[in-house]
Amino acid sequence: MTKIRNIELGDFPMLLAPMEDVSDPPFRAVCKDNGADLMYTEFISSEGLIRDAAKSRQKLDIFEYERPIGIQLFGSEIDHMRKSAEIATQVNPDLIDINYGCPVKNVACRGAGAALLQDIPKMVKMTEAVIRATHLPVTVKTRLGWDDATKNVPEVAERLQDIGIAALTIHGRTRVQMYKGVADWTLIGEIKKNPRIHIPIFGNGDIDSPEKALAYKNQYSVDGVMVGRASIGYPWIFREIKHFITTGEKLAPPTLQERVDVCKKHLDFSIRWKGDKTGIFEMRRHYSNYFKGIDHFKPYRMRLVEASTYEEIEAILDEVSEKFMHSVMS
């Protein structure tokens, strides 16, 4: 049984990665339905929370059915991170997560996210401040290091565990790599096997199939895996991985009707949570992913993207159901 302090996550939990502009409550709802064991909010700016910015505040929305759910924070100022942890604690998540892994320029170049991998003493002080600011478990997500010459995550793991973090997720790339190349889990496995390490270690990076999840589980002995990009438009990956690990058999892919139904649920929640205009607009990025592998789908995707009401989109999705019911999807 993998546990983060007193939170039981099962034998080999599947974690949904915090993804900016993706892992909002509507997206998390369909992932939870399909077996995600622990999910995180999109990363939230500590500066935004302190300024009471509407976008940052909205990202604090969590729902009972999502539990266990973590709120992920990022920032470059220790005091601001402490204050934002206090604010996040008030909405009663199950844990607080600190982002020391985001590689994007407007985060890392402002001294937040993966930039802290260049200043381990500051990372330690910031983490200590967050731990002191909340009664909740504090976890961390990070990368191997800033670049190939500074893969310092083994030191990071020991030092952060020593000050009290409750779990660590490691993405198997450096900041310089961004999302390019192949994720290297070698150091993740070494940290898990380090006799000094007793907190759960979760691996992240390139988990895009049940076979890979099982192979990495066996090879690197991690306590669970975090799935990111492979879940976009395909929340079924969580149930497929779980089934394969339990039985050694592959589940059949979702039917077209399942794809349509989940897309409708996602859309409905998106509208209820964000309002008609924003809810419909922000769903546009998901349609091509939900229907990936269907030949000749492009005209329908264009119509879905151009539609401006729920009724229009529902009618197009019903038409897709009818038209492609017997299609074979790759």
Score class of each variant (00 low, 15 high):
residue 181 G to Q: 14
residue 163 I to S: 07
residue 293 G to W: 05
residue 221 S to H: 15
residue 141 K to L: 09
residue 14 M to I: 14
residue 72 Q to L: 06
residue 330 S to C: 02
residue 251 L to H: 08
residue 34 N to Y: 15
residue 302 M to S: 06
residue 248 G to W: 00
residue 39 M to H: 12
residue 157 A to F: 08
residue 43 F to T: 01
residue 17 A to H: 05
residue 322 E to Q: 14
residue 13 P to V: 12
residue 193 K to G: 03
residue 257 Q to G: 04
residue 159 R to L: 15
residue 48 G to S: 05
residue 326 H to C: 03
residue 32 K to H: 09
residue 154 P to M: 09
residue 79 D to Y: 01
residue 296 H to C: 02
residue 202 F to S: 12
residue 234 Y to K: 14
residue 156 V to L: 14
residue 285 R to L: 11
residue 61 D to Y: 06
residue 95 L to I: 12
residue 150 T to N: 14
residue 293 G to S: 13
residue 157 A to P: 10
residue 221 S to A: 10
residue 229 R to F: 12
residue 133 A to P: 14
residue 205 G to P: 09
residue 159 R to N: 10
residue 310 Y to R: 14
residue 58 Q to Y: 11
residue 44 I to C: 00
residue 142 T to E: 12
residue 160 L to G: 12
residue 296 H to L: 03
residue 49 L to W: 01
residue 195 P to V: 13
residue 228 G to V: 02
residue 140 V to T: 01
residue 243 H to R: 00
residue 185 W to C: 04
residue 92 N to S: 15
residue 290 Y to N: 08
residue 109 C to S: 07
residue 170 I to Q: 11
residue 140 V to H: 04
residue 152 N to T: 13
residue 43 F to N: 01
residue 16 L to F: 05
residue 244 F to A: 08
residue 46 S to M: 02
residue 106 N to H: 07
residue 208 D to A: 15
residue 92 N to K: 15
residue 212 K to S: 02
residue 198 H to W: 07
residue 250 K to Y: 14
residue 161 Q to E: 15
residue 319 E to G: 04
residue 61 D to G: 00
residue 134 T to E: 08
residue 316 I to W: 03
residue 94 D to N: 13
residue 187 L to N: 05
residue 259 R to L: 12
residue 252 A to R: 10
residue 225 V to F: 08
residue 261 D to S: 15
residue 25 P to A: 01
residue 196 R to Q: 15
residue 225 V to D: 11
residue 104 V to N: 08
residue 311 E to R: 03
residue 263 C to N: 05
residue 311 E to A: 11
residue 106 N to D: 01
residue 208 D to Q: 10
residue 189 G to P: 06
residue 85 A to W: 09
residue 301 R to G: 01
residue 307 A to E: 07
residue 89 T to R: 05
residue 205 G to R: 04
residue 109 C to I: 01
residue 299 P to Y: 05
residue 182 V to R: 11
residue 245 I to C: 14
residue 232 I to R: 13
residue 51 R to H: 09
residue 42 E to L: 04
residue 137 P to I: 06
residue 80 H to M: 06
residue 329 M to V: 13
residue 120 I to Y: 12
residue 277 K to R: 10
residue 262 V to F: 04
residue 323 K to W: 02
residue 35 G to M: 12
residue 74 F to N: 03
residue 307 A to R: 07
residue 103 P to L: 01
residue 137 P to F: 09
residue 176 V to T: 14
residue 304 L to V: 10
residue 82 R to P: 04
residue 73 L to C: 10
residue 227 V to R: 09
residue 262 V to H: 02
residue 278 T to M: 09
residue 211 E to P: 01
residue 160 L to E: 13
residue 288 S to R: 07
residue 231 S to R: 06
residue 211 E to W: 00
